[in-house]
């Protein structure tokens, strides 16, 4: 009898323990992720109502707006062109970034690769530079008057490009993201490569496989899960591009305050005092991000993770 109660008591304690361990994380998650998301969703359904001149006491009240903010957001052509711009940006950036990351990872994984540690560190290093600092530094390199490139071109009497001009600025932003992003993805892929058992390469070599063939037939297919993961991360980062164009904006006439969707959110919230519109656009961006990342995962799931089932 007494053993039974002790056992029950112990079981009770056992079931409580995981929750106790989880509690700090869950509480923080609820407080700093779920509640703010909920509050943003709530704000997106509200708006300000001013009466008359709006100068007296209590002339400004917050009222329920229904889906008005969402309607305004989806009918805003600036948001659409910003969204399309970001899609184009992603379509250009993600393949180049992951392609370079993969190439560097494969090169470093070659047997007898020279200066491996040095190369790895130097490719990774730009990732350690905060995006805002990187963007400012690149800004100096782009501005015709301060750019060493333009200085050299001018000395040789060659035409000087304006890298922050209308068409070029898009590629200027891609370049900054590329410079900062390759290293991180390279490290992820390289780590995944190191986890592949060496016996596979050995037997491949015994069968007369060249290093290039090993890369294409063995390494890349086995890297698929890591490639999928880096792609999803890069896509999410792409949709949220903000820091680079924001830092370049004061330097040029070619970047508007709604150049990317997230910049529009920032403008609404902090420049034009419309937190409600900002909240609605944020919710829309989150929804699009979810749809795109899960859509991509579904699309590649069978190919990438098929053998694991």
């Amino acid at each position: 009898m007494s053993t039974a109660t002790t056992r029950a008591g112990r079981r009770g304690r056992r079931t409580a323990a995981p929750y106790a361990f989880l509690a700090p994380a869950v509480i923080l998650f609820v407080l700093f992720v779920l509640v703010p998301i909920g509050y943003a969703a709530y704000l997106s359904l509200r708006k300000v109502r001013v009466s008359g001149l709006g100068l007296g006491r209590g002339a400004r009240t917050e009222v329920f707006a229904g889906l008005e903010n969402y309607r305004a957001a989806v009918t805003d052509s600036e948001l659409w062109s910003g969204g399309l711009r970001v899609l184009g940006y992603g379509a250009l950036l993600v393949p180049i970034m992951l392609g370079l990351a993969l190439l560097f990872a494969l090169l470093l994984d070659r047997p007898r690769a020279r200066l491996g540690r040095f190369a790895r560190t130097s490719i990774f290093l730009p990732y350690a530079v905060p995006a805002i600092i990187a963007s400012l530094l690149w800004g100096f390199l782009y501005l015709p008057a301060t750019s060493p490139l333009n200085y050299l071109l001018a000395r040789f009497g060659l035409p000087e490009p304006d890298l922050l001009g209308g068409g070029a600025v898009f590629f200027a932003v891609v370049n900054i993201a590329l410079w900062g992003g390759v290293g991180f993805n390279m490290i992820v892929l390289y780590t995944a490569l190191r986890a592949i058992p060496a016996e596979l390469y050995e037997s491949a070599r015994l069968d007369g496989c060249s290093e290039v063939q090993i890369a294409f037939r063995i390494k890349i297919p086995l890297l698929a899960p890591a490639l999928v993961m880096t792609t999803v991360f890069s896509m999410i980062a792409t949709l949220q591009v903000f820091v680079e164009p924001m830092a370049l904006r004061p330097l040029t006439n070619s970047i508007s305050s709604t150049w990317t969707p997230l910049m529009k959110v920032y403008r609404d919230a902090f420049a034009t005092d419309d937190r409600y519109a900002a909240a609605a656009t944020s919710v829309l961006i989150a929804a699009v991000t979810l749809v795109l990342s899960f859509g991509f995962l579904r699309l590649v799931q069978n190919r990438a993770f098929g053998q694991e089932r």
Partner: peptide, 28 residues
């Protein structure tokens, strides 16, 4: 980066509005 900034801002706003709810609304 931007996401964590957004979260911080929202957290601030939540905090601010909670405080506001407790203290304001007196026209005197």
């Amino acid at each position: 980066m931007s996401r964590s900034l957004g979260a911080k801002v929202l957290a601030l706003v939540v905090g601010a509005s909670l405080v506001a709810a407790c203290t304001s609304n007196s026209d005197d």
